[in-house]
Design a protein around this nucleic acid. Structure first.
Length: 452
DNA sequence: TTTTGAGTTGTTCGA
DNA sequence: GTCGAACAACTCAAA
């Protein structure tokens, strides 16, 4: 009777799971393992811990209580368990973050010392990071050629869900951790909920995704990011349900490709998680000190006086999620209107986002800040009022998230300081003047790049 | 080796 | 109100 360990990390599903499939093909029975790594657990936000716990509960339920949860450093826990159950091979999916990759190497070498080995049949991306190169053999730094190559590669066929999973019995489990209490109204966690969400999106919303995704009030994005983050669903499964001749489908596929692109970038340049990928703006002046701290706090709490920005920030705290359009507008405001270092904003986003992913989040921030691969040109500065009028035409998004403005009629909701008598009670005047700060941002960029 | 075409998401200004 | 150009040069990727 042979036994294999399947180490689940951010692939918390049974369907289309090549890692699980490979283990089942290789052994008579499996031990499905999740390791609560204190280092990751402590640093994860309450929102993400809550969601993760829900995913584990769902997985455990599907395994009829067979999930083995152990707390501790994976470098100790995984080899220990493998030895205990007599597993020759540990199967897990690949990771891309600096910590995860180092951890995986150490686990693999600890297992090897004990005469065991690791197999990595899959990753959480459509194309494994590092697997797509330019014709010269380099890593893509520009999205469009990456996307071309990515499309040509095509999605592998989804694997069938195993009918029966023979789980080894009698293996001690510490049990799924208790969920922390959270203030946010978070989505239902787990594979079951993720599949339901995906099916609904593919059935109802993807056809006109290209036209409606930017309408913040319509809320017509997929909202699948938390499920992708924890692997409740694999992007391959979504891609398989798309017809790329349809514009909505093609646009959504492109978003999946962006997720892959940034994972590739982080894989190649691990330091780019928290420091500028490009040094062209190395010397740019960022604001620090008391006033910057006050500005940052106002931004975090959604009281900048710019309703569209405030709506986004309040949605983030309330739902652990923010509409993509609002992510760009709020990020641009922090970097270009308040001149605050992008890493501060990225850190705050990660603390609240239930989909918080190092590569997508931080490279998205670098795109806004102008320091990333294929970054926005320096002169691309979002106007918070213009964005508001374009992407929240009737103000529904603002009125939903900024109740002080719920009764403001017409287009004044985008710029309440223009009302007679100023903004309604309880809503602030703008903390900065956008036109002036836009000029200031351009000045700082010029100074940093040596242009005159 | 050299050349060529192109590059997520914007804004403003002037015709 | 609409439209095109300017906002910069540079680097990437492929031929």
């Amino acid at each position: 009777m042979s036994t294999a360990v399947v180490w689940f990390r951010r692939d918390l599903r049974l369907s289309d799971n090549p890692t699980l499939r490979a283990a089942l093909d290789a052994a008579d029975e499996v031990v499905p393992l999740f390791v609560v790594d204190p280092r990751l657990w402590e640093s994860a936000s309450a929102n993400r811990r809550w969601f993760l716990v829900g995913c584990l509960d769902d997985l455990d339920e599907q395994l009829e209580g067979g999930l083995v949860v152990r707390r501790g450093d994976p470098v100790d826990v995984v080899p220990q368990l493998a030895r205990q159950v007599g597993a020759e091979v540990v199967f897990h999916a690949g990771d891309v973050g600096p910590y995860g990759r180092e951890r995986d190497e150490r686990v693999a070498s600890a297992l090897a010392d004990d005469g065991r080995r690791v197999e990595v049949p899959d990753t959480p991306w459509v194309v494994a990071p590092g697997d797509l190169s330019t014709t010269q053999g380099g890593t893509y730094k520009v999205f469009t050629p990456f996307f071309r190559a990515w499309k040509e590669r095509g999605a592998p066929d989804p694997r069938n869900t195993p009918r029966r999973i023979p789980v080894a019995s009698g293996v001690r489990s510490d049990g799924v951790p208790r969920a922390p209490s959270v203030d946010a109204d978070l989505p239902t966690p787990g594979e079951t909920a993720g599949r339901r969400r995906a099916n609904r999106f593919l059935r109802e919303d993807v056809d006109d995704y290209d036209e409606r995704r930017d309408d913040t009030a319509a809320d017509a994005t997929s909202r699948l990011s938390p499920y992708l983050k924890y692997g409740c669903i694999h992007p391959r499964q979504l891609l398989g349900g798309l017809d790329l001749r349809n514009r909505g489908h093609a646009t959504f596929a492109q978003e999946l490709a962006w997720r892959d692109f940034y994972a590739h970038v982080l894989h190649e340049w691990p330091d780019s998680a928290w420091s500028a990928w490009s040094d062209t703006l190395k010397g740019i002046s960022v604001s620090r000190g008391t006033q910057a701290d006050e500005h940052f706090e106002a931004w975090c709490e959604g009281r900048t006086g710019y309703p569209f920005v405030d709506a986004g920030m309040r949605q983030l705290v309330a739902e652990g999620w923010m509409h993509n359009r609002a992510r760009m507008a709020t990020a641009s405001f922090l970097v270009k209107d308040l001149h605050i270092d992008w890493t501060r904003g990225a850190r705050f986003f990660l603390r609240h986002l239930v989909d918080g992913d190092l590569s997508s989040n931080n490279h998205g921030w670098q795109w806004v800040a102008g320091t990333g691969t294929d970054a926005a040109p320096y002169f691309r500065i979002f106007n918070p009022v213009r964005q508001s009028k374009r992407f929240d035409r009737d103000g529904g998004y603002i009125r939903r998230w900024v109740p002080e403005l719920a009764d403001v009629e017409g287009s004044s909701v985008h710029e309440p300081w223009t009302l007679d008598g100023g903004p309604p009670d309880g809503y602030p005047e703008p903390i900065v003047d956008h036109a002036a700060e836009r000029d200031e941002a351009l000045r700082r960029y010029e100074a940093a790049t040596g242009r005159s």
